[in-house]
Amino acid sequence: MPLLELKKVKKIYQQGKIEVPALRGVDLTVEEGEFTTIFGPSGSGKTTLLNMIGCLDTPTEGEINLNGNKISDLSKKELAMTRRYNIGFIFQSYNLIPVLTAFENVEFAVRLIGNLSEKEMREKVLNLLKEVGLKGKENRRPGELSGGEKQRVAIARALVKKPKIILADEPTANLDSETAQDVIQIMIKMNEELGTTFIFSTHDPQVMEKARRFINLKDGMISSDKRGK
């Protein structure tokens, strides 16, 4: 059974009396461990698609199955629980909690799971921050970190709970090309070492080429779906 399955997913936004279709019938299957990029011009529906997969939004029509659960059938509470245990998010603008340190931002996600002791939690968070190259910067607040470092914290926060899938919406858009490469390399490393499935959207061809599957979205529909090496 695939990890993620979308069947004829449509999303229509209502703007006053006008209906604006963002997704016009997307069929997609993603297996566990895939490293997939979704690309396409602005307004093609990349963010909407990631939000649907991430249980942050619901489709107007169609069906989404994640890890054997039909998302459209889940209640608000069940959707929150699915996000808590199965999905990690990385956003373009990092969305870290400014009053918490790098360590606390990552710890916050694992604390919600609540299956580890204080000692285990601390070790896990410190190890992960070391893995993403933030050793020695654990006690810095987001305001004291560079863009690349903030995104590393966001990656660690997404990974710490060992989710089934990580969704990254333009994770390198606010970074310079060198930092963007570093961030994408960390994502590749985590995908290979932990087997976490990654789906990320991007505009950057240099970032895009690192993926192993390429989904081109155009006018709310998948116009091509290719696999690389």
Binding site: L56, K76, M81, Y85, A109, L112
Partner: peptide, 14 residues
């Protein structure tokens, strides 16, 4: 606002 959105994305209930 975005912090609250992130809390929801992390799976916090209302």
């Amino acid at each position: 606002k975005s912090e609250i959105g992130m809390m929801k994305a992390l799976g916090m209930r209302e």
